[in-house]
Every structure is written in C-alpha cells, then in structure tokens.
Nucleic acid binder design. Structure first.
Length: 302
DNA sequence: AAGTGAATCAACCGCACTACA
DNA sequence: GTGTAGTGCGGTTGATTCACT
C-alpha cells in the first residue's frame, strides 16, 4: 500500500528558503493564521510542500522564537529533561519557551553530548562512563541502550509535574544531584511556567527598572553564578502583551510603507533611549525584520 | 592565500499518530 | 473496522561556516 506523499513533489522547490518565500509565508500566516498546512503553499503562492512550510514557520519564522545559543540555564534544563524523557525533543522543547525541538536536538548533538562525555557522563543513559569495565556489566553495556521512555505506542504518558530531579552516580560511587551541578537550580521549580515567570530581556519592553542588570543579551554568560544576569521575570503578562501586539501589527503591515512607522512606534514604545532602541532592534531579531532592515543578529528573549 | 577537516544548523525524509469519513 | 488525509516527531543529510595548517 504505502501512503501517498504529503504533497506532489514534482516542480516543488527544495533547499534553503529565500527572503521572498519567507515573506510570502509570514504574510499569509499573519493574515490567515495557521490552518491546513497542505493548502498553505498554494494559497500563499509558494512552490513548497506544506510540510516544508510548517517546518520553516515553526523552526524559524515564528515571532516568538528565541534566537542564539542556549543559555547555560537552558542547557542544564535540557540535560535534566533528557534524562527524564529521552530523545523526545518536542516534549523537551515544550519546557523551553521560544526554543524549537530542532534547535534543541541540534544543540544536544553538537554541544551537550560532548560536554557530558567530557564530564564522563554517558549522554544516552546519563550515567557515568566507567573507565574500568567489569565483566558482568559488559553484557549490559553491549545491549542497546534505551532511553528512559521508549516508543510512541507503548509509552506511558508522563505527567510533567511528576518529573523529578535526577541523581547520578559518579565513578567513585558517590551519588550527586544534577541540581547541584546545575548551580543549585532545581528545574522542578520552573517546569510549569506561570504568567509571571516568562523571562524577558531587560532590553525589551517597558519594564526594566534595575539598571545594574547587564544590558547584554549574550546567551553564554561567563558568570556562572548569575545565569539570570541579563533577564528578569515579567511580573504581569499584560506588560508583555503590548509588545506582541506591536509585533503582530508590524507583521500584517509588512508590505506597506506603514510598516516602518509601526516599527518606529514599536521601538518608541519599547524604549525612549536612543542607544537602547538599537539594542531593542538587535534583541528583536525578527528574521524578516532583519532582512528588511539589515539588522544585525542578537538575542530576543521571551 | 589555499586547502582541508570539523563543526554547525536548516531542511528533508519517512514513520507514527490522530481524526474523520 | 478500515482506509485515507493531515500533521507531528525524530533521525539524518548536506550546505555553509569556521578553525587550523
């Protein structure tokens, strides 16, 4: 039997997306919302399959995406969640607002795996890699290593609230708590994100009050003791909403001359300080915006 | 400056799941 | 109950960038 392909692949474009294609897709989705992905390319005038459109939107064009490297805190959260969930990247991503499963998966394969190996921790089992292998353990090690949860059909749905912090056994037999490695931060405490727990950059929005906080949005802070150094908790979601409204407004006016004035309105709303305004532009890193205005890259935290 | 290998990450592929007729 | 369409997910690929010689 076999299923039909998700789309007729004849004449469809593959490979990297162009700015024009991005613009068409964003315009379409902002004006019509996310609906039947199969119909999107036709309606948006794109020579792509719906799947490709969905992927492009969810992994790159969505306005609420965070860009840049994962912060130390996010990285540690990924490690802990991976220990609980295995390679279920979408589940892991759901705990990290603004991050996509693809991004996390890539980061895991390119950065975290290496780090864990350096720490003598098996990235698959999250247990210490033993330097001396005992015969009885060798048999076990030769068996395929299973993630904590296997397969979609037999999987037991995990209640997120039940995710417990990990303990690991070091090569000397001593147990240690992953949370202690994580600068003492217990990920349990942030798995369910509340309205007032949304992290925002201090460069973004009207809320910053603490001038001692670094304006840098660098995702890899050199100060391990203060991973929240460039972020703050949003006290009220309403503080965030106006920014999103402005962003949405900008998006719908993409092809209009009004776009730039709306951008200006948005930036004025976000900050009255000229230097800070530039930071806001960088911080936004709205992909299409970057193309439109040749904005340099930066982080946009939410 | 040129060559080469490693690292990165956007995008693709194919399977699984869900909803619906 | 069965087949199909639509969508989501995880694994993999390959183009590009970076670092080093």
């Amino acid at each position: 039997m076999g299923r039909q392909p998700c789309c007729d692949k004849v004449g469809l474009k593959k490979g990297p997306w162009t700015g024009d294609e991005d613009r068409k897709l964003i315009n379409f989705i902002l004006n019509n919302g996310q609906c039947c992905w199969r119909a999107v390319p036709k309606l948006a005038g794109l020579l792509r399959c719906g799947k490709s459109c969905r992927l492009r939107w969810t992994n790159y064009l969505r306005p609420d995406l965070k860009r840049g490297l994962l912060s130390e805190y996010e990285e540690k959260m990924v490690i802990d969640l991976h220990a609980q969930l295995g390679n279920r990247w979408s589940k892991i991503a759901s705990h990290l607002p603004g991050r996509t499963d693809n991004e996390i998966k890539n980061h895991w394969n390119t950065h975290i795996k290496k780090k864990l190996k350096k720490m003598d921790i098996d990235p698959i089992t999250h247990k210490p890699l033993r330097t001396i292998t005992q015969p009885s353990e060798k048999i076990q090690e030769n068996q395929p290593q299973q993630p904590p949860i296997q397969g979609k059909t037999e999987e037991k749905e995990i209640d997120d609230s039940s995710i417990m912090q990990s303990t690991m056994t070091q090569s000397n037999g001593e147990e240690f708590n992953l949370m202690e490695v994580n600068n003492g931060f217990c990920t349990n405490e942030v798995l369910l994100i509340q309205r007032n727990e949304i992290l925002v950059s201090n460069n973004f929005g009207p809320t910053p009050t603490n001038s001692s906080i670094s304006p840098s949005c660098s995702s890899s802070s050199s100060n391990n003791n203060n991973i929240f150094g460039d972020m703050q908790f949003l006290e009220n979601l309403d503080q965030w909403q106006p920014e999103m409204d402005h962003i949405n407004k900008m998006g719908t006016l993409w092809d209009d001359d009004e776009f730039l004035s709306n951008l200006d309105l948005f930036l004025n709303h976000s900050s009255s300080d000229e230097n800070n305004r530039n930071d806001v532009i960088n911080a936004a890193e709205y992909p299409l915006l970057s193309q439109e205005l040749q904005i340099s890259t930066g982080d946009w935290h939410r």
